[in-house]
Design a protein around this nucleic acid. Structure first.
Lengths: 128, 128
DNA sequence: TGTTGACCTTCCCGTCACTGGAAGGTCAAC
DNA sequence: GTTGACCTTCCAGTGACGGGAAGGTCAACA
């Protein structure tokens, strides 16, 4: 099937499929006589896998690692779990950062009248 | 003072100060006879303001808006508050996204033995 | 006076994961 | 034969910088 169909079935845009090929996340697809990329159902499955992994926030690098483990029938699930737990830790760090900022901003915005006068604790805090 | 000293006092790296100048966040600094950028205490204050705003996650575009309001003595605090509340909403959306991913991953990693066997619910989920 | 070493300058490339768009070739239907 | 929906490659831009090269400047010290 053509790249457009593969995109529709996998949820990965044609542009992005070409990008994944260019960075080596997927091998170069076969070509028709006219030079069109041709995809098998199997390759679409791989694209779906990638799409799901990316939507869980895994970096393209990590997705490459997960793909390799997925294909490796003699893998240790510990290796998969390690990648996932590392990712969870990163996410939790990020959430903590955002939450600190959120609380600071909520405090400041609560103290800001938000009227037509210039006095503003938000600007005061930034200017401190 | 030179850019290095301004960087040390403001917390914004010299590289980043030049970048802010190049994108118009700050006006071009004065120059010494030798072509070195020269900063006043006032300009360092502005850089400190920018540094604090950026550390609260405001985009450079929003920082430009906050700087303008900061300098505008006839500003309405409502305009500042609006920028801050919009940012809070963005952060909360981001936290919610991350938390959904986090919960999914925690569920999967909990169900993954993480031993030397290949069976792995994480890969199974991605392959579904 | 010469020389070091710490500054500073501009410029370009790389990051991450794409997205947009231009210029042009291919295919199926009407 | 023509339309329109595909496909191709290539280049540039995104945000917010950081790295590093090549070269100029300055203050201190021998």
């Amino acid at each position: 099937m053509n790249i457009g169909e593969a995109a529709r079935r996998s949820g990965v845009s044609a542009k992005t499929i070409r990008y994944y090929e260019s960075v080596g996340l997927i091998p170069a697809a076969g070509r028709t006589a006219a030079g069109y990329r041709a995809y098998t159902a199997n390759e679409v499955e791989t694209l779906r896998f990638i799409h799901r992994a990316r939507s869980l926030g895994f970096s393209v690098g990590n997705v490459a690692g997960l793909l390799e483990l997925w294909r490796d029938r003699s893998r240790a699930s510990a290796d998969v779990k390690a990648i996932a737990l590392k990712h969870v830790a990163d996410i939790e760090r990020k959430i903590a950062e955002l939450d600190t900022i959120r609380r600071t901003l909520l405090d400041l915005t609560t103290r800001c009248c938000g009227d037509d006068h210039p006095a503003c604790p938000i600007l005061e805090e930034l200017a401190t």
